Amino acid sequence: QTVVIGDTTYHLNNPEAAQQIAKELAKKYGLKVVISGNTIKLK
């Protein structure tokens, strides 16, 4: 699972954790979560 935040890319072996982290950050910073395949992007 790949999480992309701005110009930073994180690789996590746990998809659920990756999605949870993405949701928390999106909520905290008012970002939009875009999931395509096994890549999660925060914009």
Rank of each mutant, 00 (worst) to 15 (best):
Q1D: 09
Q1N: 12
Q1P: 11
Q1W: 15
Q1A: 14
Q1V: 15
Q1H: 14
T2R: 08
T2C: 15
T2E: 04
V3K: 01
V3E: 01
V3Y: 06
V3L: 14
V4R: 07
V4W: 07
V4S: 08
I5M: 06
I5G: 03
I5E: 03
G6T: 03
G6Q: 05
G6S: 05
G6P: 03
G6C: 11
G6W: 11
D7L: 12
T8A: 09
T8D: 06
T8N: 10
T8C: 15
T8I: 13
T8M: 13
T9A: 07
T9L: 07
T9Q: 07
T9E: 07
T9S: 08
Y10F: 12
Y10K: 02
H11N: 08
H11E: 07
H11R: 05
H11Y: 14
H11T: 07
L12D: 02
L12A: 08
L12I: 12
L12N: 01
L12Y: 14
L12H: 04
L12T: 06
L12F: 15
N13S: 12
N13L: 14
N13E: 12
N14M: 08
N14W: 09
N14I: 11
N14P: 08
N14R: 03
P15G: 07
P15C: 14
P15I: 13
P15W: 15
P15T: 10
E16K: 09
E16Y: 10
E16L: 10
E16H: 08
E16D: 09
E16Q: 09
E16S: 07
A17F: 10
A17N: 08
A17H: 09
A17R: 11
A17Q: 12
A17Y: 10
A17K: 10
A18F: 13
A18M: 10
A18G: 02
A18R: 03
A18Q: 02
Q19W: 15
Q19K: 09
Q19S: 08
Q19Y: 14
Q19A: 09
Q19D: 06
Q19L: 15
Q20N: 07
Q20L: 11
I21W: 15
I21E: 01
I21Y: 11
I21H: 02
A22Q: 02
A22L: 12
A22R: 01
A22P: 00
A22F: 09
K23V: 09
K23R: 12
K23C: 13
K23A: 12
K23G: 04
E24F: 15
E24H: 14
E24K: 12
E24W: 15
L25D: 01
L25H: 00
L25E: 00
L25S: 00
A26Y: 12
A26S: 07
A26V: 04
A26E: 09
A26F: 11
A26L: 13
A26N: 03
A26I: 06
K27G: 04
K27Y: 08
K27R: 10
K27C: 10
K27P: 02
K27E: 14
K28F: 07
K28I: 07
K28N: 01
K28T: 03
K28G: 00
Y29D: 05
Y29L: 07
Y29R: 04
Y29H: 08
G30H: 07
G30L: 05
L31I: 09
L31M: 11
K32Q: 13
K32R: 06
K32P: 04
V33Y: 05
V33T: 01
V33G: 00
V33F: 06
V33H: 01
V34Y: 10
V34K: 02
V34P: 00
V34I: 12
V34Q: 06
V34M: 05
V34D: 06
V34H: 07
I35F: 07
I35V: 10
I35P: 00
I35H: 02
S36F: 11
S36W: 08
S36E: 14
G37T: 01
G37K: 02
N38V: 03
N38E: 02
N38Q: 06
N38I: 03
N38Y: 04
N38R: 01
T39I: 12
T39H: 05
T39M: 07
T39V: 12
T39G: 04
T39E: 10
T39C: 13
T39W: 02
T39L: 07
T39Y: 06
T39D: 03
I40V: 06
I40Q: 00
K41C: 15
K41R: 12
K41P: 00
K41V: 15
K41Y: 15
K41Q: 13
L42K: 01
L42C: 07
L42E: 02
L42H: 02
L42R: 00
K43Q: 14
K43R: 09
